[in-house]
Structure formats: C-alpha cells, structure tokens
Design a protein around this nucleic acid. Structure first.
Lengths: 250, 250
DNA sequence: CAAGAAGTCAAATGATAACTTGAATAGATT
DNA sequence: AATCTATTCAAGTTATCATTTGACTTCTTG
C-alpha cells in the first residue's frame, strides 16, 4: 500500500461522524422509538411499553439516540421525557422509510404480515384528503390513542380510538365517506379501522401516511397550545397510556 | 414478563427491515461511497481509491449497500459499475448529512479539521447563486475532476479542476465575481479553490452545497446525453481517474 | 486455449452491539 | 431522615461487523 493522501484520516473521521447518525437509526427498536416520538414526547416507561422491551434496554437505546443528536431529553422531577431533537429528524425518518419501502422488497412482505391483508383497505393521499376536506365531503377519524389526538390532529378530525370507534359511529350518517388516519404509513390502527367500518357496510379509506407527515406538508392542523411550561405540567399529570391502549400500536 | 401482544414479532421484523437501510449507511466508508456515487456511476477500483480502502473490502461494502437496496450494479464485461438505486437515495443522504450537521456538534470540529480553516471561505446558497447566475454577474467554476463535470454540471459553469485552475484564470477578467462548487458541502475542492483565488486578490465564494443538491432543487443544469447505452460505452472507454486526480477528493 | 484483469468469496481476528441482571442515583413522598 | 419511584449505570454473554489475506470466478485478449 502506498501512503495515504493527506487529509485521509480527517476525511474518514468526518464521514464516520456523519454515519454515526445512521448508525443510531440502524436498529429496529430505535426506529420504532423515533416513529413513536414523532407523535410527541414520551417518558421512558411508556416508550419501553411501545417497543416491547425492558426499561433498562430502552434506556440504553434512548441514550444512543440522544448521543447521536436525534433526541432531546427533558427532566421533570424523577421523570425524563424524550422528544425528537427537531422536525428535521422526523423528515430524516420519513426519507429513510420511503427509501426502504421503495427499494427493499422484503418490506412489502413484512408490512403485509404485520398490517394484515390490505385487499380491502383503499388508500388516499394527503393531497386528495386535503381537497375533500376543504369541500366538507368527508368524516376524518383520528384513530390514535386520545392523548395523541389531543397533542395535535388534522383540522376537523374526530378522535376515534379503535376501542371506542364502534360506539361513535351513531353520530355520523351512514352515507358518510370515512377516512381514517393514525401515526404513519405502517400504523395498524388505520387499517383496522377501515376494515371495521367496511365490515359494517360503510365507505372508508385510510390516509396513506400519518399525522406527522400531514403537519410537515403544511396542511391544516389543530395543535395543543404551545405554552410549553403549563402544557407540560398538564401532560405529566395525565395518567400514562394503559397497557391495552399502547399494546401493538403502530 | 407478561406475554407479548399479538403482532409484536411482525412489527419488530418490519421495523428491523426499515432500519436495515440505516444500518447500511451506518459506516463512514459506506457514506463516503454514497457521496461519491451521487456524482455518477463508478467501478469498484475507482471507489476503492476514493475511500482509501482495499478492493476486497470495498467490494464487501458495495455488496452491503446493494443488498440494502441503496445501489444498483451494472455489469459490463469484466467491470461492474455501481450507481445509486434512485434519486431518493441521494435525498436520504442529504437528509442524513443535514441532521448530522445540525445536531452533532462534533461534525463542525471534524469538518474544520478536514477542510481547513473556513475563515476566508465565504459561502453562498443555491438560491443566491441561481439569482446571480441569471443576471450573468458571476463566473461559476466546477472544480471537480473533469469527468464529473462532463457527466453533468451547473448550466453555464466552467470546468476548472483544481490542478488546472491557476492556468485558466487568464480567461476571466480580474474584476469577475467567482463562485466555486464541487461535490457537496464537505467537498474540499471548493474550499481550496476559494482560498487559491482569494490569495490572488480575486473575489471568490463557494456554493454551500454541491452539484447533486443543485440538480435536485430543479435549478438549471447541463447533462450528458441520457442515451445510456452509448454513453456508458464512452465512459467505460475513458481511462479511470488517476491516483492524483482522485486522491483526497471530497 | 492460455494469460491477464476486475471482482467476489471465504476464513480468521479483533472490535462493537444487544440484551439481561442486579446495583446505583436522584428527585418525590411520608 | 426513610422510603419509594423513575431512570441510569455496570458487568457479562452471545451475536454481528470491519478488515486482511489468499483463493476463486468470469470475462477479455492474444
């Protein structure tokens, strides 16, 4: 081997640092964490429940994500709330997910295995939904846990967590055109909601993406007051999601 | 531990598959490869030279990137040309780089160590350059190796590889406003060109990003004919970059 | 068909990652 | 101060990764 050109070590170090961010995302549990945190901040135990891992292990994953610059923790008493470091982290996650969807054939198979057959689950793009919404022609159902709805939702959407969905249906005319959405393209709630509605003979589709993508696209939303201090206190006072609520969420 | 909720394994498998793409980018040499291939296709030995690694090792990295869906190889005789699987892969790389730049403090330090002091190297955004360019007020210098210029460059730019830059300067008026660009924000060529020009008392700045970002922004470019077959033959017939040309490129 | 060139494969080694378990903080509550 | 709770730290095990070396395959050229 001939001698390395000058700057080789510095260049390697620079690119290794750039790659460190990808490394942090290079684990299924950690991508799941980012996906959850794209909906809003969470404390360690809640995240552990979402990803089905021990608290200790989850804590280590959270540390790695934090050191990689992807998360920003916030202490409050004995609790630590984690959130994405910025909106661009959510954009990075979307870009990653889209490339994987487009170029990794395996993803399609695994998505079908997780979400169930998508035969009867017709999709709708954000642009299409925005148009129909402005014409008042649809009933939009946010099927995420109610806490996520409260933190922010598509303007005009109704909160309809899956468990409560059947009882809520009386409110709407049978001829309504329903659109369900949840956390993102690989969130099961929306698929399940559409299947439930269609099984009752109603017209229903799902938004192809989720709330974070909708908001980033600059489409109309209703957000919780950005008064962080007081809002944070309220959030902390609320009970964490029950095991039933968070189990198997996507 | 209580039993896992149904769908947990399937969900883990799905997110692991999504994370596999990040894993592929989670190595400095592989991010360097992606950065190089964002300029156009290359054969294995050239890539090995660019990243300063053995051909065998480079080949393995290329395999990993390919299996992750990020690259698409093309055989031609005994040679194998690698290219990015799609434009979105380049977008993913940009998103990753931007998040790292924004949130990893270390990057700034390492960039300074690699690129040298940026005190005298003023930057210019793509939007600013586009405006000045349309008014004909600047001389735009593409300081990448000439082969990359030929594959595609900013409309109106002159090819000025660093080694030839000094001799080319006679062509331009001393009062000209120079803007240099190369592969991306962490490409050394542009910084070196700006320092060289300024040392001669000329007015020079660098484009803050690089050619791939310019093209993706939809700004005006000159591209080699997209007649892939014939063009590929021509490219293959051309000699690979010399060690001097590719050494220390960024 | 033999020789050469470009890539890939396979085995071996040292380094890093993921998860579990049990202990240690740090702030809240009594 | 003593106790409780949420989170983090530390150690240990098994698995995966990066790199080198040398052999192997495949296509081209004489």
């Amino acid at each position: 081997m001939e001698g390395s050109p000058p700057g080789r070590d510095a260049k390697d170090a620079l690119f290794a640092a750039l790659a460190s961010v990808a490394k942090a995302l290079g684990n299924g549990h950690r991508t799941e964490i980012v996906d959850v945190l794209a909906q809003g901040e969470r404390q360690v135990e809640e995240i552990a429940g979402e990803i089905g891992q021990s608290v200790a292990n989850t804590s280590q994953h959270l540390q790695r994500l934090t050191h990689a610059g992807l998360l920003r923790p916030r202490r409050q008493g004995t609790r630590v709330f984690y959130r994405l470091a910025s909106e661009r982290v959510a954009e990075l996650w979307s870009a990653l997910r889209d490339v994987a969807t487009e170029h990794v054939a395996e993803v399609e198979v695994l998505a079908a295995a997780y979400l169930g057959s998508r035969d009867g689950v017709e999709q709708l793009s954000a642009a299409e939904l925005a148009e129909r919404l402005s014409e008042g022609r649809v009933v939009v159902l946010d099927v995420r846990p109610s806490r996520e709805y409260e933190a922010g939702h598509i303007a005009g959407a109704e909160s309809a967590p899956l468990t409560e969905l059947p009882e809520l249906l009386d409110r709407f005319p049978e001829t309504a055109e329903f659109v369900a959405y949840c956390r993102g393209p690989y969130c099961v709630y929306a698929d399940q909601a559409v299947r439930l509605l269609r099984a009752r003979g109603l017209t229903a589709r799902r938004l192809s993406t989720g709330f974070p993508e909708w908001r980033r696209a600059g489409l109309p939303v209703s957000l919780a007051e950005p008064a962080d201090r007081t809002k944070a206190a309220v959030t902390a006072a609320a009970p964490p999601l029950s095991a039933a609520e968070r189990a198997d969420a996507g």
